[in-house]
């Protein structure tokens, strides 16, 4: 159980002051143009435009029911959009399963469904990508190599775990998310989609995860950070999209936006003021 940074605050503060997004690359890692999705008569998403560059963190903010889950499922290949264009590295794509998305380098880390708690850290790290040795048909796992690689890959991301043989369930929630992020980066994810990675975590644990989001960004990965917490998004994001009732209602770029703007935009501005007024009148 490691938390490598005894004191997190300075790192997060430094992270908050990180360089503005590099100039937009010629071909974005992901791009949605006018994408819509309906389930029967329910319009889950409409006219969604999204632009995700390599080596940046793109935050998608939205309250419950805003359409965040549907958006993740489109990006990760679970759902097909009904309208609009979905481009990956400039090529228009039509995913029919998450495996197709994975093959294009799009990895998704789900909030609770990323790791198998009873399995050891190294077994989790290589799950689905097991290294083999000897006669291929027998499928012998290169266990020693897997253990060493796991330790090295985690260290590279700044995660120090002494014993990769311990069940991953003995780690804290933040560390498990960190291992899942390191795993995606190690196996060459170009786009990393994070589904509410901090929502179930405390302040310190969230700090750990945010740190590894920046570590992934630094390695040139395009991170899509989906959250309902504007504070967390503001600390690490380069570009911010606000999703509300199935529509993209605002878009901000780092350096030209304040935390208050994000909160305000998320809550729907006027709604929050009305709410604040109502609450103050009750008190």
């Amino acid at each position: 159980m490691t938390e490598n940074t005894p004191d997190l605050t300075p790192i997060i503060e430094e992270a908050a002051g990180h360089d503005p997004a590099p100039p937009a690359a010629d071909t974005p890692a992901l791009r949605l143009d006018d994408v819509g999705k309906t389930f029967g008569s329910v319009i889950a998403l409409r006219n969604i435009n999204l632009h995700v560059d390599p080596g940046t963190v793109t935050c998608v903010l939205g309250d419950n029911g805003a359409g965040k889950s549907t958006l993740i499922k489109i990006l990760s290949g679970v759902h097909k959009p009904n309208s609009g264009k979905f481009r990956v590295q400039g090529d228009e794509v039509d995913f029919s399963s998450p495996r197709d998305a994975l093959a294009r380098g799009i990895a998704t880390v789900y909030q609770d469904l990323a790791t198998v708690p009873l399995m050891s850290i190294w077994r989790n790290f290589f799950l689905g990508n097991e290294p083999t040795q000897g006669v291929k048909a027998f499928g012998f796992m290169a266990t020693k190599r897997a253990q060493h690689t796991t330790k090295a890959a985690l260290l590279e991301m700044g995660i120090d775990l002494r014993d990769t043989n311990q069940p991953i369930g003995t780690l804290s929630g933040g560390e498990r998310q960190a291992v899942a992020i390191a795993r995606a980066v190690h196996f060459g994810a170009k786009v990393l989609i994070l589904d509410e990675p901090t929502s179930a975590l405390g302040v310190r644990q969230s700090g750990i995860v945010l740190k590894y989001i920046l570590a992934a960004r630094e390695r040139g990965v395009a991170v899509v950070f989906i959250t309902h917490n504007p504070h967390h998004a503001f600390l690490v994001g380069d570009r911010f999209y606000i999703l509300n009732r199935g529509r993209m209602i605002a878009e901000f770029v780092r350096g030209k936006v304040e935390l208050e703007d994000l909160i305000q935009a998320m809550a729907g501005g006027a709604e929050l003021e009305t709410l604040a007024h109502e609450i103050s009148s009750i008190r």
Binding site: M119, L127, E130, T132
Partner: peptide, 24 residues
């Protein structure tokens, strides 16, 4: 304990959703 299939056995029983997400 030593094969890829063994890893899949543990994963399928431990958490079949997480296993599917990882491509098992």
């Amino acid at each position: 304990t030593r094969t890829v299939f063994g890893n899949w056995i543990f994963a399928s029983g431990g958490d079949s959703n997480a296993a599917r997400n990882a491509g098992v």
